[in-house]
Amino acid sequence: MKPSLRKVLISGGRGLIGMRLSEMLIDAGYEVAHLSRQTSYGHYCSFRWDPTTGQIDEAAIGYADFVVNLAGASVSEGKWTDERKQDIMASRVGGTNLLARELREKPHRVKAFISASAIGVYGDADARLLTEDAPPAPADDFLAEVATQWERAAQQVQALGVRTVVARIGVVLSDEGGALPTIARPVKLGAGVVLGSGRQYMSWIHIDDLCRLLIQMMEEPEWQGTYNAVSPNPVTNREFTETLAEALHRPLVLPKVPEFGLKLVMGEMSEIVLASQRVSAQKIEQQGFQFEYPELRGALASFYQKEEE
């Protein structure tokens, strides 16, 4: 990596992944700036943008040697009303379209565009092992359609001749936010349960492994195209819940929460926890990525052992 290529522009920099990625990039000697709807915050340089109106600071793209595109409204906060679903879609596709427009129309020196997607693109696939070649789920699957449109928007950047990498991200494990604290809360209270049948697969990744992967994708020109960003050891919901209870030294409560009960409470959003996605990490391992946390037990211990010390 040339010393001069040190400036990284991140959309979604205030999110769970974006904040940890920013910390790791700073530690590695990079300069980091965020795209934000606010003018400034914290100790990061920020450029203002608003994907809903197509507005962006004129200087943003000119700043960057690399762009990491993570922006997107949370899929797990609030029920999926029509308005909420529109926001989930527009925040991802609109933001990516806006970045593609800037890269097309403005002078820049961007060497790589790393864009998030999600393993939701595969839909509910039962126990079938999913490689990057698996077709996306039909358009009537909302999360699959979001991911498909998101990736299609990123392909505009590839068409411009900018090296583009799409990371289909699994369930990100962090004790700072995301799915894990929500799942762990009832387990800590001794009320942990298996969700649905418990046989549905969860393809997960430790947040530090994900950020190391995104940096490797950014730095190494061999990375191009679409990759699954998951650990090499997906687990069933039952296995996940049992391993989490063990890490927290708590019992599990039976019976399971039935599928119809989850759908009653969560509505369409229940597909987040009920869909089964057993996703392969073979491609990123063959590309040379090495996991620090390949096994769920070690990943959970990294968060919860320190609580006991």
Rank of each mutant, 00 (worst) to 15 (best):
A134Y: 13
D141R: 05
I169N: 08
S117E: 05
I114S: 00
T131A: 13
F142L: 03
L129Y: 09
A147T: 03
T131I: 09
D82N: 15
W80M: 05
R101G: 09
I119G: 14
E132M: 06
R168Q: 09
N97T: 01
L103G: 01
G161H: 07
G123T: 01
T164M: 01
I119Q: 10
A100E: 02
R128C: 13
V172M: 10
D140I: 00
E83S: 08
G95F: 02
A116E: 08
Y122I: 06
W80A: 07
A125D: 11
D82W: 14
E83D: 11
A112H: 03
G120P: 05
Q156M: 11
P136K: 08
Y122C: 00
P107R: 10
D140H: 13
Q149P: 00
E132S: 10
E145D: 14
L98R: 00
G170E: 02
T148I: 01
V172Q: 10
V171E: 10
S91K: 00
Y122L: 07
V172G: 12
Q86M: 14
N97Y: 12
I88P: 00
Q155C: 12
A118C: 11
V166R: 00
I88Q: 00
S117A: 10
A125G: 12
L130N: 09
V93T: 12
R163C: 04
V172K: 11
R152P: 03
V162C: 07
G95V: 04
R84L: 06
Q149I: 01
E105F: 02
A144D: 13
V165T: 02
D133P: 06
A154R: 01
W150I: 08
D141S: 07
I88M: 01
K111S: 12
R101K: 12
I119P: 12
Q155V: 02
V121L: 15
P135N: 07
G170F: 06
G94C: 02
A134S: 14
R104S: 14
L160F: 07
L103N: 05
V93G: 02
D140S: 13
E151T: 09
E151P: 03
R84T: 03
G120C: 09
S115K: 05
G170T: 09
E145Y: 01
H108P: 09
L98V: 02
V166Y: 03
A167F: 08
T96L: 04
S115Q: 10
K111G: 02
V157P: 03
T148F: 13
A153D: 07
V172H: 09
A125V: 08
